[in-house]
């Protein structure tokens, strides 16, 4: 029996098996301890070169990855490009070829286009970690959310988790939906229909149009950030109105039949999708998510890095068969 492995790249949770997801979560556990040490560094990725390629502004994710890389002793280079002056596609192909020519080992990429991570992964030998591609997936965020939920419950299997807010434009939502479904959770989404993807029920999730119903149903709420530009694009009338109709407030939570665990991938718009008293309240695990983020990313880097390409290839084939 081949031990579970992730293969060459981490592109999304949709293509992972439950076993692979559990492998990442289990592997993250020992890495939590490394970050608690006085000397927060292990030599595991010594000599590995990792490029953090960010075509979109990001502070948290990039910093979290950087901490994870440095704590594993990897050498890192950060490349940021807004992609505004150059045509994105040309840059991506050329960047891929240039990176390959510099003999790097791994690329962590964020890109505004869905599918961009897969595009890159198919064109370079280095490992590719998707740090968010368009509105498609943000797998490390999904995994750290899963880890945080698992930390607080005995098991994810059978839990009721509702993802609230702008599902339409959210890669975090998609990664969460796949991960939660694969680990056996019941999943719902809640938001105005104008911010829900067409046919989302087809993925096997429930839909709530009222936040009160979502709160009554759920064990866990994962509250997404409402991108402020959605208002100017006409998806919702105003932030004030959004808070009034969809905001997760203390009053609404207190009316719930049970205590809920509150997650938010950050950064928060306090007083828009989430009330400050909820964010800072006893059921919020928002800061644990941040802590877990580093451990999950260390686990991913550890699981993907190195190894003989032939073995990694064989493992990838097995993965594919396993995923059928």
């Amino acid at each position: 029996m081949t031990p579970p492995s992730l293969g060459k790249d981490l592109l999304g949770l949709e293509k992972l098996t439950a076993e692979q997801i559990r492998l990442v979560l289990d592997t993250a556990e020992p890495f939590k301890e490394v970050s608690e040490r006085a000397i927060k560094k292990v030599p595991t990725l010594r000599g590995k070169t990792i490029v953090n390629l960010f075509f979109e502004a990001s502070t948290r994710t990039r910093i979290s990855f950087e901490f994870a890389q440095k704590r594993l002793s990897a050498d890192t280079v950060n490349i940021s490009s807004t992609g505004s002056s150059v045509q994105k596609g040309e840059t991506l192909v050329d960047t891929a070829r240039n990176l390959e020519a510099m003999r790097i080992d791994m690329v962590v990429m964020r890109h505004p286009s869905s599918g961009a991570a897969k595009f890159l992964a198919e064109r370079i030998r280095s490992n590719v970690i998707n740090a968010g591609d368009g509105q498609h997936e943000h797998p490390t965020q999904g995994l750290l959310d899963l880890l945080t939920i698992r930390d607080n419950f005995d098991a994810i299997d059978g839990l009721k988790v509702c993802i609230c807010g702008d599902i339409l434009h959210s890669r975090v939502a998609r990664s969460n939906i796949w991960g939660l479904l694969k680990l056996g959770a019941e999943v719902a989404v809640c938001g105005p229909q104008s911010l829900l993807p067409r046919g989302i029920e087809g993925l096997g999730v429930q839909v709530f149009h009222r936040i009160e119903q979502a709160i009554e149903w759920s064990d866990v709420l994962n509250i997404l950030r409402l991108q402020l530009e959605r208002m100017s694009a006409g998806y919702i009338p105003s932030l004030r109105e959004y808070y009034r109709v969809f905001g997760v407030t203390m009053e609404r939570l207190e009316a719930a039949p049970k205590d809920l665990l509150i997650l938010h991938p950050g950064p928060m718009n306090r007083g828009v999708e989430i009330d400050s008293r909820v964010a800072d309240g006893p059921h919020s695990v928002i800061l644990s998510q941040v802590t877990n983020g580093v451990a999950v990313r260390m686990a991913i880097l550890y699981l993907l890095a190195g190894g003989e390409p032939a073995l990694a290839e064989a493992a990838k084939r097995t993965n594919r068969e396993g995923a059928e």
């Binding site: 869905s114 599918g115 498609h136 890669r171 067409r198 046919g199």
Partner: peptide, 15 residues
């Protein structure tokens, strides 16, 4: 096309 596939792939759909 706007539908289940676009929702999964995270691509903007054309209804």
């Amino acid at each position: 096309h706007e539908g289940l596939v676009s929702s999964r792939l995270g691509l903007k759909g054309i209804p």
